[in-house]
């Protein structure tokens, strides 16, 4: 596959979407269309990244993101190794940087990092000679999730320009929400945030950073005229930390139920980054309704990650040459 000059990759790391231009996002999404075609072939594998070593460094539980990255790397014929914090030298007290240096010495070209502390991807990017992909760091950023959401939304809505997207749930602690805000606003979408104040944090921050953004406490009101809603996972710890009186009350006022779905615009899409707490933030019948694109998000995730791996590897090769 050859890329036109305007799509030649210049990016070394993917840490967040805050430094992506609209053109760059579109390039990644367009590349992902081609990758999705590869995935639909009888033999869903191409030799493009043969000899490139990808290490999935997962310091936090994850099923779909890790498998998605693994399948993406394999579809491009890269060598892929999974590293999880359990059963590694981390348990013996090795630091993140030491582990990174070890993986570097073992020949890793691209590190995919998932970590429960914000800023860890930036930390590795300062010291690693290859490329870093942030697969979620604390409450900070989850750029590949946001890109696959953008891909899914663009695919279904045709464009993101002036489309109205609602994000509902634990926005304060959500890396998905943060990265999506950068990506969606860069693509010209209008955003409404919906959550109780304890899960929004400093509301002025959102309004100052994205002046067109709206904050609404009522989900019914938020969903009026929405083209799509991204439902966030509610961690049970939030209730234990006292941010919510009860999960029951949260579900009563903020869950996406079929009644709320029916009251909204008929074609409104439903997205969820997973894993879902069915019955808390989303009703089970909504998750499998015709408007739900949750399964497609997962499928698209592989294509989007293939596109990123491809771009980063090309850049590494060009630099190396």
């Amino acid at each position: 596959m050859t890329l036109p000059e305007s799509m030649r990759p210049t990016r070394r790391h993917v840490l967040d979407l805050d430094d992506f231009t609209r053109h760059e996002i579109e390039t990644v999404l367009d590349t992902a269309i081609g990758m999705k075609e590869i995935l639909s072939r009888e033999i869903a594998q191409v030799p493009t990244l043969r000899g490139v070593s990808v290490v999935n460094m997962f310091y936090e539980e994850s099923t779909r993101t890790r498998i998605s990255f693994e399948l993406a790397a394999k579809a491009l014929s890269a060598n892929v190794v999974n590293f999880t914090a359990r059963g590694s030298s981390v348990e013996k007290g090795e630091s993140l940087l030491d582990t990174m240096r070890t993986l570097q010495a073992l020949g890793a070209d691209i590190l995919v990092l998932r970590h429960s502390y914000a800023g860890t991807a930036h930390l590795l990017a300062q010291h690693f000679r290859g490329a870093i992909i942030n697969a979620g760091d604390g409450s900070h950023a989850h750029p590949t999730q946001a890109l696959l959401d953008l891909f899914t939304l663009r695919d279904k809505l045709g464009t993101l320009e002036r489309r109205h997207i609602v994000i509902v749930g634990d926005i304060l602690h959500s890396r998905v929400a943060r990265s999506n805000l950068w990506g969606l606003t860069t693509m010209g979408a209008h955003i409404t945030l919906c959550a109780p104040p304890t899960l929004l944090g400093n509301e002025q921050f959102w309004l100052d950073t994205w002046p067109d953004l709206r904050i609404v406490y009522s989900l019914e009101a938020a969903l009026q005229d929405a083209d799509a809603v991204i439902v966030l996972r509610l961690q049970r710890e939030r209730q234990e930390a006292g941010l919510l009186p009860s999960l029951r009350e949260y579900a009563q006022f903020f869950a996406l139920t079929s009644a709320r779905l029916q009251a909204a615009h008929a074609g409104m899409l439903v997205l969820h980054p997973g894993p879902m707490n069915e019955g808390i933030e989303i009703a089970p019948d909504v998750a499998i309704s015709a408007q739900s694109v949750i399964e497609e998000q997962v499928t698209n995730g592989v294509a989007v990650r293939m596109a990123l791996l491809y771009h980063l590897a090309l850049h590494l090769r060009r630099k190396g040459a």
Binding site: A118, G119, D137, G138, S139, H140, A141, L172, H173, R175, R178, G201, N202, Q204, F205, W206, D208, T209
Partner: peptide, 11 residues
């Protein structure tokens, strides 16, 4: 706790 912590997702 302020605009920068919100931006960076740091507690």
């Amino acid at each position: 706790e302020g605009a920068v912590s919100m931006r960076l997702g740091l507690p």
